[in-house]
Write a protein that binds this DNA or RNA. Structure first.
Lengths: 192, 192
DNA sequence: ACCTGAACACCGTTCAAGT
DNA sequence: ACCTGAACACCGTTCAAGT
């Protein structure tokens, strides 16, 4: 890549991170190009689609998540690994507003620039689930798709301003359903 | 309202129902106006926003849902009432693609044309939950917001093509978390 | 090679001009 | 009263023209 092209590319990525952090994943590509000081056409040749841009923005974090899954699998018990990875992933979905919806859409069509990363995260989660199921600490009537659906659904809900305040509690509720013997399962005595 | 205006209004509603059923809630207002054979400006004066249009499209069903809650509260046990109303509501969210996201957004801002209906549904659900909690059949550490969040999150997930096939099972998983003593809770023996 | 402005077909909003 | 076409400011896509 030519030097000026490389400079444009990194400039775009830096600015995109700022703009998206501020205005969410649905911000117009034109705005990003404007704030990066390049033509819209230039932005679109570096990143032909919005998802291509986000693939570049997220790949580091997504790779870290798949790696984290393997790491947790080694270091702790299967149920704890699943639980804390679940939390990590939900937390990740909050990195930018609207990014969960994009990932869920990408998960559907293999042509998306985000498809590969999503698939990797998906199977990393499926592994953790399977492991916990073999030990009997995760409920047996679930598969990787269910896990991914619950995580993204949760991420989407927490994305909504009206549900955000209950975020931690909602995570707690949903993780409860996954583990057969959740830690501190004393909700009968708890109060809202 | 003048006779021709009334005719336009009902024509718009009929056509909108068709178009939205086919293309989802995000279809362009222009398309609806086009297929209804009226100018775009006409459509927009009858329904100034997309949400105003949907309020008209959904109000019958939404009213039915709030009424159904009261009906169930009388006719069956608190946990069964909560459970079957939950299912009804999730089912309703599938009436048009993308309608859940709109309702969740409407739930946030009181200026939305859909706000009132959403609030009514919300409090109907909260009542059912409270009733079941008093009997000890629904977990105590939940409130109406959590219930609404779980339902819409589930509706959103089922809206995604990749998660749709697991819809019934996902509903089963999430309802399990709400009831303290779910019916047929034998998931340890079940297989995916 | 790489960048860019402009043309294009779309969107929802607004309003002056028609009946 | 009600309807409508058109102008407007936006969007993402595409491409011929520039360096």
């Amino acid at each position: 890549m030519r030097a000026d092209a490389e400079k444009n590319r990194s400039q775009i990525l830096t600015v995109a991170r700022e703009v998206v952090t501020e205005h969410g994943a649905d911000v117009s590509m034109r705005d990003i190009a404007r704030r990066a000081g390049v033509g819209l056409a230039t932005l679109l040749r570096h990143f032909p689609t919005r998802e291509a841009l986000f693939e570049a923005l997220l790949c580091t974090d997504l790779d870290a998540l798949t790696q984290k899954a393997a790491e947790l699998e080694r270091s702790t018990s299967a149920d704890e690994a699943l639980l804390s990875w679940f939390r990590k992933l939900v937390e990740f979905t909050q990195s930018y507003r609207g990014v969960v919806a994009m990932m869920a859409a990408a998960h559907t069509n293999p042509d998306s620039a985000l498809y590969a990363s999503c698939a990797a995260v998906h199977s990393a989660g499926a592994r953790l689930l399977l492991h916990a199921q073999r030990e009997g600490t995760a409920r047996a009537d679930m598969n990787g798709d269910d896990l991914f659906a619950l995580i993204t659904a949760l991420g989407w809900a927490v994305d909504q301003p009206s549900f955000a305040p209950r975020a931690d509690h909602l995570v707690h509720l949903v993780t409860d359903v996954i583990l057969t013997n959740p830690p501190g399962n004393d909700f009968m005595k708890a109060t809202p």
